[in-house]
Design a protein around this nucleic acid. Structure first.
Length: 335
DNA sequence: TCTGGGGTCCTCTTTCTC
DNA sequence: TCTGGAGAAAGAGGACCC
């Protein structure tokens, strides 16, 4: 979906049409938080996802800043995914605003089916999307990104050298800022240049698993199937304080609240957990975790809170102020 | 100066058991 | 009793995704 959160807000508030709109955090750009979505008008000012709201505000003070309304975005998400599933039952969720659809069994042309999906999503939600159609997920994802917004891009194996290889390596799924920099130091800037690097070199630099992945991905090879169902591996909650704190009671109170919320969710979803991890981010942005694994899976607040506070006790909270506290429940088993 | 929240997966190191 | 290897599990950190 194109600039999904912002598009949803603009749809229900027509007065926002043609204005720069930034969705993120509490909607107050003087408070701590980052941009979840900036619409295309706001992007003209250099605003983009993951940017601190305060930075976005200095770049464009007259933009409309709004809080995240996950309930409403979830509702629209279910609507467009229901449309997709009418075209094929084999759908893989990729977060709230993306999905893969297996159209292998369709006998219509990709252009035809792509246009019809766009039309139906527009009818159901009033929103535009960008579609990529390709022989596998990796290439479809790249294709979906090639003509945004409101795009439809079709890629075949034959397009690899001309349309994929000239793209920067960062366009590959799984290549983030760190790997991008690492590759730049190796004088590898494009996907084509990556494809020319011997496998042994990639394995030496990036390890067995990721080295092989990069080698295949650069040649457009991806044989991973669509994942239509999965179980959660962990459930977590975390909060960043408005101001860094060294007040133990504040940290403890927040950890207790987060633990209660997380336990409630784990129970509601019918799981027990065996691993409890507490996360602390200090004022210098260094993040540390302390974990404990229990003998038996549990789902009681007492047992999990006790474990969480045991983990908290393994931090030295005297030297630096704390910016964030979080708790994660892992090694889940279904009840 | 600024850097959210909810996840997954991978790597390296430590710890424990045989 | 000491030493060492193999393998599993746990713990910590980091990269990446939306």
């Amino acid at each position: 979906m194109d600039a999904f959160y912002a598009a949803v807000e603009q749809k229900r508030r027509p007065e926002l049409k043609d204005k720069p709109v930034v969705i993120g955090g509490s909607g107050d750009p003087t408070k701590r938080g980052v941009v979840s979505t900036a619409n295309y008008e706001a992007r003209k000012y250099g605003i983009h996802s993951a940017m601190p709201l305060k930075t976005a505000y200095t770049l464009c003070p007259h933009a409309v800043f709004l809080p995240v309304d996950m309930e409403e975005y979830g509702r629209l998400s279910r609507l467009f995914k229901a449309v997709l599933q009418r075209f094929s039952p084999v759908m893989e969720d990729v977060g709230i605003d993306e999905a893969f659809l297996d159209l292998s069994d369709s006998n219509r042309s990709p252009e035809q089916i792509g246009q019809e999906i766009k039309k139906e999503i527009m009818a159901a939600t009033g929103l535009t999307c960008s579609i990529g159609i390709a022989p596998n997920k990796l290439l479809a994802k790249i294709a979906s990104d090639m003509q945004k917004p409101d795009g439809l891009t079709i890629i075949t194996e034959r397009d690899l050298e001309e349309r994929i290889w000239p793209l920067p390596v960062r366009k590959l799924w799984g290549v983030g800022p760190k790997t991008g920099e690492h590759l730049k130091e190796m004088s590898v800037h494009t996907i084509g240049e990556l494809a020319a690097v011997p496998l042994e070199t990639l394995v030496r630099h990036f390890g067995m698993s990721y080295g092989h992945y990069l080698s295949k991905a650069s040649r457009g090879i991806d044989d991973t199937p669509l994942v239509t169902h999965w179980e959660p591996k962990s459930i977590s909650r975390e909060t960043t304080f408005q101001t860094d704190t060294d007040h133990w009671q504040t940290i403890a109170k927040n950890l207790a609240d987060l633990t209660r919320e997380t336990v409630e969710e784990v129970r509601e979803r019918g799981y027990r957990c065996r691993n409890i991890t507490v996360k602390i981010r200090f004022d210098d942005f260094k993040t540390h975790t302390r974990a404990t694994t229990l003998e038996e899976p549990v789902d009681t607040l007492e047992a999990i809170r006790k474990a969480a506070f045991h983990c908290l006790g393994n931090f030295d909270l005297k030297k630096k102020k704390v910016r964030l506290v979080g708790v994660r429940l892992g090694t889940l088993t279904k009840k």
